[in-house]
């Protein structure tokens, strides 16, 4: 296991609302992640898991604190630079896939590259597509795919730009158990084989136990953080 620090979170807080109705979704959260780690974040709903993930992914803004990904304090970037940073350094996977219905599988997968005006490297794309088992589905539209397949496309999309960190928000929350384990397997493959840093939010104990490190959140705080394998 390497020792390169990919992510550093410092005193992260997020408060929704104002005054009496204010809700602390994140309360002074700090931790670091090294390259290649596979972290599962568990906790009851409303514990701040999703908020944390969104803030790590640069799609929501913290009330205070810093998120440093590969040395870049991402909330010091302006909105445009942050968007470009997201497209190159962060891969996000959502529970509801969030694919674009009018784009086919290949376009959806290569979207971050296309947004950058780049042409995807066919060889690399083929590798990823084969691993995801989507090689015969490249021209399909999302609504022609099963949920598991759609989620695989979104994994491909998160991976295509070779990001510094991959974040998954309940990636199996909408899938049956067979598809769930498939998705987790795939995430693990990329984590192990490509040393892709991965943070995943889940309710599922079995999925959490497959991670290298499990963080438990409650009321916006990390209450346990243990390495279960290295």
């Amino acid at each position: 296991m390497s020792t390169i620090e990919i992510l550093r979170v410092e005193n992260l807080s997020k408060i929704y609302g104002k005054g009496e109705t204010a809700v602390k979704a994140l309360d002074d959260v700090s931790f670091t992640v090294t390259k290649g780690e596979f972290i599962a974040v568990v906790g009851p709903s409303g514990s701040g898991k999703s908020t944390l993930l969104h803030i790590l992914g640069g799609v929501d803004r913290p009330t205070s604190g810093r998120v440093i990904i590969e040395g870049t304090d991402i909330y010091k970037l302006d909105e445009t630079k942050l968007a470009i940073f997201r497209r190159r350094q962060i891969g996000l996977i959502y529970q509801f896939y969030n694919l674009i219905p009018v784009l086919n599988v290949k376009e959806n997968m290569t979207l971050p590259l296309l947004l950058d005006g780049r042409t995807p490297d066919e060889a690399e794309l083929t590798k990823i597509v084969n691993t995801l088992g989507l090689s015969d589905r490249l021209d399909y539209l999302p609504n022609q795919l099963s949920g598991g397949q759609q989620q695989r496309v979104s994994i491909g999309r998160a991976l295509i730009s070779n990001p510094a960190i991959m974040l998954a928000d309940e990636p199996t929350g909408n899938l049956d158990s067979k598809n769930s384990s498939e998705i987790i397997e795939l995430l693990k493959v990329f984590n192990k084989k490509l040393k892709q840093t991965l943070i995943i939010i889940t309710h599922d104990e079995r999925i959490a136990l497959q991670a290298d490190r499990v963080m438990t959140m409650k009321d916006g705080r990390i209450i346990t953080d243990e390495v279960i394998r290295s």
Partner: peptide
């Protein structure tokens, strides 16, 4: 050293 500038364009990529 971090050279990234997070801009659009070929040089930035």
């Amino acid at each position: 050293l971090d050279v990234r500038d997070n801009d659009e364009g070929e040089l930035s990529i």
